[in-house]
Design a protein around this nucleic acid. Sequence first.
DNA 1: TCTGGGGTCCTAGGACCC
DNA 2: TCTGGGGTCCTAGGACCC
Length: 419
Amino acid sequence: MTMFALVDCNNFYCSCERLFRPDLKRVPVVVLSNNDGCIVARSQEAKDLGIKMGTPLFKARNEIKRYGIRVFSSNYTLYGDISSRVMQTLEQFSPRMEIYSIDEAFLDLSGTGSWPDYGQQIRSTVKRHVGVPVSVGIAPTKTLAKLANYAAKKFRATRGVVDLSDPRRQQRLLALTPVSEIWGIGRNLTRTLERRGMRTALDLAQINPRQAKRLSSVVLERTVRELNGESCIELDEVAAPKQQIVCSRSFGEKLTDYSKVREAICEFTARAAEKLRREKLAARMVNVFIRTSPFDNAGPKYSNSATGTLPQSSSDTLEILALATRLFDMIWKEGCRYAKTGIMLGDFCSPDRIQLDLFDMGPGRKRSDNLMRVIDTINQGGQGKVWFGGQRPQKNWFMRQENLSPAYTTKWNCIPVVK
DNA sequence: TCTGGGGTCCTAGGACCC
DNA sequence: TCTGGGGTCCTAGGACCC
């Protein structure tokens, strides 16, 4: 019998921040999005205080002060490293595993017995080896495993593990769960379904799959089938090759200056090209966008983007930069207070299959590859020592990160010392 | 004053082909 | 004069996820 487990770290970013700060145990903690904009992770204590996911920091200032909530800027270097440790630990529990996001993974538990015990074993092992708490949901479809995990987190009596292999238990939980909590049902679908009188997951599970398709799309049809125990979404063991790479960011302050916004675009282009080379890909499509903030009433609203095609697929920062800056000039408008800019790369192929330009048969290409390799090696040292014309080394306006924790596990000088 | 970033998938509609 | 049907590819936009 096919059985999936969804293992999901509890309040992952907060748990990471606490790993090296035992003094923060039982203290409410929140972690902010890039640029210290919104609250994107909350410890249980912070949730209990009514802090909502996605709240802009400035709207929670009062509560933070009143309850002494500890605030952290996001530290993706730390979270990424802890994540890979969790995943390594999970690998030993199943021959087939899909890393679904930074803090969760599906395991194939078919053929294993006594699922609740096995779930508890997973929990205690991750806690012992890495130190972060996880919850485990077990069920015959991925959608039900997600639901089981939701219950494992929500109901304390489950001790962090819910086994939904029994259809009667599935029904009971479905009846208790609001339709909005189902994997794949977002804000819009919730509205559509509620308008038709479906409020619980059970209400949705009971409609005809074909009707679900008519109501929305095959995605909803699959969800209905999965809720009824029919597995439609397979385990993806190998990550699909990327189809696009995006680098974008809001600024720490509004920018009106052409040269500063252009610097930002150059910076993002260099980063995106690095990612591209790390994935061993080459891109042909480049898209650049700029926009003002929808919340900013102090100036005109403006949002625009431009797309261009490279003469041939490339992962060379200089070639991409040349196109990106040209696209940027096409959409630049004077007199706006810009809040955000970014670049998208797409239309990928692997570099060994690049269609060569008639006039670029080899040596030039090779030189560019070598140059990029050298630059990547130098920059991986950590501080970004080589940059291109247009990028700028010190950018104090760039991103707000006022409460950043140390890179405890990835930088020698940040490793905690036991006295 | 202060509102994230990086992705995927699906559908509809237009252009084009035979 | 009569003016089909099926297929592919591309793009934009919407919805969702973490």
